[in-house]
Simulated assay, not measured.
Amino acid sequence: MTQELTPGPPGLTGPHSVALDLTGRTALVTGAASGIGRACALRLAAAGAKVRAADRDADGLRALQDAASGGALEPHPVDLTDAAGLDAAERTAAGADILVNNAGAQLVRPIEEFPPDDFHRLLTLMLEAPFRLIRGALPHMYEQGWGRIVNISSVHGLRASPYKSAYVSAKHGLEGLSKVTALEGAEHGVTSNCVNPAYVRTPLVEKQIADQAAAHGISEDRVVAEILLADSALKRLLEPEEVAESVAYLCAPEASFITGASLPLDGAWTAH
Rank of each mutant, 00 (worst) to 15 (best):
D59G: 02
T30P: 01
T202P: 00
D82S: 07
N193A: 05
A19T: 01
V29D: 13
T6P: 00
H172C: 09
G136T: 03
K179I: 12
A255P: 02
E220H: 00
T13S: 01
G147L: 03
S256Q: 09
E143Y: 09
L125Q: 06
T6V: 10
A261D: 04
V205I: 13
G24P: 01
V205N: 11
T191E: 13
S69I: 02
A67C: 04
A47Q: 02
H120I: 07
G60V: 02
D66P: 00
M1K: 01
A45H: 09
L204R: 14
P240Y: 09
L99Q: 12
A84T: 12
P130F: 14
E245L: 05
K164L: 15
T92P: 00
P139C: 06
S246G: 14
A45D: 08
V247N: 12
V108T: 09
A261N: 10
G24H: 08
S178V: 09
R135H: 10
Q144W: 11
P139D: 10
A213F: 12
K50R: 06
Q3D: 04
R132H: 04
T26V: 12
L177E: 11
L265I: 05
A68Y: 12
L138H: 02
G267N: 07
D97E: 08
L183Y: 05
L73G: 07
G85Q: 07
E241P: 00
A182K: 07
G95L: 01
H76Q: 14
N196Y: 06
A94K: 10
P203Q: 08
E74M: 07
L250E: 06
L204H: 06
V78E: 11
V51I: 10
E175D: 08
I98E: 13
S165M: 14
L28T: 05
F114C: 04
T26H: 02
Q65P: 00
L229R: 02
K164M: 15
V223N: 02
A45F: 11
V100N: 09
L177P: 12
L133F: 14
G35D: 12
R38H: 13
A160K: 13
K164H: 12
V18P: 01
P9S: 11
P15T: 06
